[in-house]
């Protein structure tokens, strides 16, 4: 079976990028925990991941004319950023619940590290394949 070096990392490439972006969103929530009228946000990871894998398997559309819209730019991450529904909304209009955000942040950090482990494993396999185990 030929190995394409372009997509050695498969789904993990998109996953790592999404995890990093989710870290940003959650960090913003925690930073604005005391800001009046700030609404907590989160990324719908499952939907964003489904979109990313669908795009990579379907390939990208060619743009041969000036007026063509590139399919890669269709619907960025913004489509998957949703407002969180608070269980106990605060009177100052802030919807950040610190404990919820902390839990989500910790989980996201663990998942990021798990994805990194997959990267390490994959790159080690490729190095072994190239060197022939010597």
């Amino acid at each position: 079976m030929p190995i394409s070096l372009d997509n050695v990392f498969g789904v993990h490439e998109a996953a790592l990028k999404l995890r990093a972006q989710r870290t940003e969103v959650l960090a913003s929530n925690l930073a604005n925990a005391d800001t009046p009228n700030y609404k907590a946000k989160d990324i719908d990871f499952q939907a964003a991941m489904r979109k990313a894998t669908a795009l990579s398997s379907a390939g990208t559309l060619k743009t041969t004319q000036k007026g063509h819209i590139s399919s890669a730019g269709l619907g960025g991450l913004d489509d998957f950023v949703k407002f969180r529904i608070p269980t106990q909304p605060a009177l100052d209009g802030n919807s950040v619940e610190t404990h919820v955000e902390q839990a989500a942040f910790a989980k996201n950090a663990m998942e990021y590290q798990a994805t990194l482990r997959f990267f390490e494993g994959k790159s080690q396999s490729i190095v072994t394949a190239i060197k022939g185990g010597s």
Partner: peptide, 16 residues
């Protein structure tokens, strides 16, 4: 406190 919306390059990561 106020959210730093104007200076944010990416509106998903906003400071305060």
């Amino acid at each position: 406190f106020e959210t730093l919306l104007q200076q944010a390059v990416d509106k998903n990561s906003v400071g305060v």
